[in-house]
């Protein structure tokens, strides 16, 4: 793009420089921890323990990643995280769609009342439920299982609310036409409502996937063997390995955990940010 010189009077130029200056500084402050993570991960132990620090190692130590990967069953953690996050997202989005459609389109005498109940659930913090949920899962025999990690967190309030809003914006004429064609609610949901809501469903899916991938407290409590741990829990446990593991390995392992999330974020950042900005997704 060509710079339109004629637009720039002196004071405006200064204003722009200042604006960019401030934004660059802010971006650096936000971005620096990531850069620090990366450069630490490729340093030698000696370089890690230097002050003032070296920004770039003399020789890139890729073997730190190998050591970090082998210091715990990270392959298994990956599989566990993928399984629990994706089944969790699938179930939650399905449950959200069904509820949303029911509240948007199906007439029922107690609908409004039930909707208030649904909204009330939004106010209850999940942290209150840790102990009771643990006890329930104990009775179900679900401690240290995938079900145990996934099922308590697939009920949907926010997603149902969001999709309902969207389903309500779909013109009645479309639904009516479908009903005249003899389609039932199930078919209308799957063939008309959901395909139209694809962008919203997509954003919701990505958002839920990331938040499940990142979740730490519940998987920490509910898993007690190495082979069931998810990535964040496995990563956190590395801290206790005091000898074999240095800061460079911790950073390398942190990168394993972050890579999928950062990939999703940078591929879909516009969709995710705009979804949030439009109130589509709660932080």
């Amino acid at each position: 793009m060509a710079i339109r010189h004629r637009d720039l009077s002196g004071s405006r130029l200064i204003g722009r420089v200042l604006t960019h200056g401030a934004l660059i500084i802010a971006s650096l402050v936000i971005g620096l921890p990531f850069i620090w993570m990366l450069t630490t991960a490729i340093k030698s132990p000696a370089e890690v323990h230097l002050f003032p620090p070296v920004w770039w190692p003399e020789k890139i130590r890729w073997d730190n990643f190998v050591t970090a990967w082998e210091s715990a069953p990270f392959g298994r953690f990956y599989i566990n995280s993928i399984i629990t996050s994706s089944t969790g997202v699938f179930l939650e989005v399905s449950i959200a769609s069904l509820s949303a459609y029911a509240f948007a389109r199906i007439k029922f005498r107690y609908r409004e009342m039930l909707f208030m109940v649904l909204l009330a659930a939004m106010m209850i913090p999940g942290q209150v439920a840790l102990i009771p949920n643990y006890v329930v899962l104990k009775h179900l025999g679900w401690i240290n299982t995938y079900q145990g990690i996934v099922i308590p967190h697939v009920s949907s309030v926010f997603g149902a609310f969001l999709l309902r809003q969207y389903f309500l914006t779909i013109p009645d004429s479309l639904y009516d036409a479908a009903e005249i064609d003899g389609l039932g609610h199930v078919r209308i949901l799957f063939h008309i409502a959901l395909p139209l809501a694809r962008p919203v469903v997509g954003t919701l899916t990505l958002y839920l996937f990331i938040s499940k991938w990142n979740s730490y407290l519940w998987p920490l409590i509910i898993t007690n063997t190495q082979n069931m741990r998810t990535l964040p829990v496995g990563l956190a446990m590395l801290r206790q390995a005091e000898y074999a593991i240095g800061p460079e390995h911790l950073m390398a392992a942190s990168i394993f955990v972050l890579v999928p999330v950062l990939l999703i974020f940078f591929l879909a950042q516009k969709q995710l940010i705009e979804g949030i900005a439009s109130g589509a997704v709660k932080g």
Binding site: I30, M37, I210, W213, N214, Y216, L231, P232, V233, L235, A236, S254, I255, V257, L258, V261, L262, I264, F265, L272, I276, G283
Partner: peptide, 8 residues
């Protein structure tokens, strides 16, 4: 940072 894993 909003979307990055808090543990990491």
């Amino acid at each position: 940072p909003t979307f990055t894993t808090s543990v990491a």
